[in-house]
Nucleic acid binder design. Sequence first.
RNA 1: CCGAGGGUGGCAGAGUGGUCAAUUGCAACAGACUGUAAAUCUGUCGGGCUUGUCCCUACGGGGGUUCGAAUCCCUCUCCUCGGA
Length: 376
Amino acid sequence: MLYSYDPSLIRHLQLSTPHGVLQTPFFMPIATRGVVKGLVGEEIKNLGAQIVLGNTYHLWLKPGLEVIKGTKGLHNFMNWSGPILTDSGGFQVFSLGKFRQISDKGVVFSEPASGQKYFLTPQKSIEIQLKLGSDIIMVLDECPPWPSSKKDVITAVKRTTKWAEICRKYFDNKMSVVVETPYRASLPRRPLLFGIIQGGVHSDLRQKSAEELLRIGFDGYAIGGVAVGEPRKYLNKVLKATLPTLPIEKPRYLMGLGRPEEIITAVCSGIDMFDCVIPTREGRHGRLFIREKKYAWLGKKKKFDFRSKEIYSAINIGREEYKKDFRPVDPHCDCYLCQNFSRAYLHHLFKIGDTLALRLASIHNLKFYLDLIKSL
RNA sequence: CCGAGGGUGGCAGAGUGGUCAAUUGCAACAGACUGUAAAUCUGUCGGGCUUGUCCCUACGGGGGUUCGAAUCCCUCUCCUCGGA
């Protein structure tokens, strides 16, 4: 599959949040439960991350709002001074498919491990995110699985719109009452609120969803419900159906994506924000990204089409072939792993199951992703 | 020397007459992973091909009983423990 790179289409916005100004495009490392697994805030910052992502549902369950309140917010709790975006729990509507029941009022989740039930409503989601001290708050949405009938996607879009309205109202009410003031004077005191566009792979529904959210009005617009199992070719279709409707001055966020080649084309299609578990999760699973020839072309104002293989490759460091490979994982990488250790050592760390392996792999892969975005 | 118990696939360890090429775990090998139920999951793991209710080799070595043995008997050998 051929992907295109056209730097003339890349957007460079500044996004002001209570905890700092963000330069687009940017990638958000995932700290679902208040930690980018294995790493401390300082390390994440040094890798070049501007912002991290936390999750409403997971933090609500653990450690719970009382703890967050006691520690004066998530930033302080996890010792991360930059902005935080929090997802609403909408993705768990999809990922916890078997463990939830959805209605117009909200979602009942059964915690998979304990069976304990939680009722998440649009209001509740915003309330939690406000209590966490989030800088960018996401509305609660319904993310339908793949495959779904068009009828079901229509229902999801309707519900998402309705919930977005409720979230907007609840958020505005709260904001008119409470304004915290620990921030720098030049920065806004209230968090941003983002709407989430659904509509599956249907162009008309995507467009409709975008228009409806636009009517409500948000600080930014996210495209959700992508990469939930549908064939890859649909990504372009969804972007084409959605982006032209959105105002150019507002940030666009492609939720949950993606592979490096997907991020490059999406940035060149006008997407500003990304988050994805791939670099950290696959890192922990022993898959390491390596820069290839064309990677160096990015950012040099050359327009070209490429295949993913030409931009990067990936190795499974646990394989026998790396047992005695004393080269760095990626010779063109200046991360802590590549500057100090060999493939053989990382292979060894994975084989003995030491947690340092997970840390070093996460550091490297995040560096790869953050550098990729930076070069764009 | 005597007594007792044991030797099973790379390792650990089930199995004690047929449904056993042999449970399971570890190791090994391959793959997956996209708003994190994920330091996780899946597959392969004696050999062969005509991929089959197929053939060959295999539960320390040899011999025997039986229609049939990893499983029962004899013998050799090695290991562990106890006693001289």
